[in-house]
C-alpha cells in the first residue's frame, strides 16, 4: 500500500535564479485572455442553451392558444341556415333521382 505522506526533511529551497527563470507574467496574461474569451463564448452559449428551449415552449404555447381560440370561435358561431326547399316535395325526388335509385322504403311507397 502507498504511504499516506512523503516526508522531505530539510529540502533545499529554490534559488532566486530558478524562481526568476520560471516567473513569466506575460504567459499567464496570455492564458488569461484566451480563457476569458472562451469563457465568455461558453457563457453566451450556456445562456442560449437555457433560453432557447424556454423560447420554443413559449412559442408553442402561444400557437396553441391562437389555434384553440380560433376553434372555439368557430364553434360559437351560429350554424348556417339550411337552403330553402319546396314544401311537400321529397328532397331526393325533387333533385330528379330515378325511382329505382331511391332507397327501398321510398320506392315501395
Amino acid at each position: 500500500m502507498a504511504e499516506k505522506y512523503r516526508l522531505k526533511i530539510n529540502p533545499p529551497p529554490p534559488t532566486d535564479e530558478e524562481i526568476a527563470a520560471r516567473k513569466n507574467f506575460d504567459r499567464v496574461l496570455g492564458q488569461y485572455r484566451r480563457t476569458a474569451k472562451s469563457r465568455s463564448l461558453h457563457d453566451t452559449i450556456s445562456r442560449l442553451n437555457k433560453s432557447v428551449p424556454v423560447f420554443i415552449l413559449m412559442l408553442l404555447l402561444a400557437l396553441l392558444i391562437v389555434y384553440f381560440g380560433q376553434v372555439m370561435r368557430r364553434r360559437n358561431q351560429p350554424a348556417p341556415k339550411p337552403a330553402p326547399t319546396q314544401t311537400g316535395l321529397n328532397p331526393a325526388t325533387a333533385r330528379g333521382a330515378a325511382p329505382d335509385q331511391l332507397p327501398l322504403s321510398l320506392a315501395v311507397a
Binding site: A2, E3, K4, Y5, R6, L7, K8, I9, N10, P11
Partner: peptide, 10 residues
Amino acid sequence: HQSRVVSLDD
C-alpha cells in the same frame, strides 16, 4: 493519487 509531500526543517 500520489502520496502527499510534507516538507520539514529542523
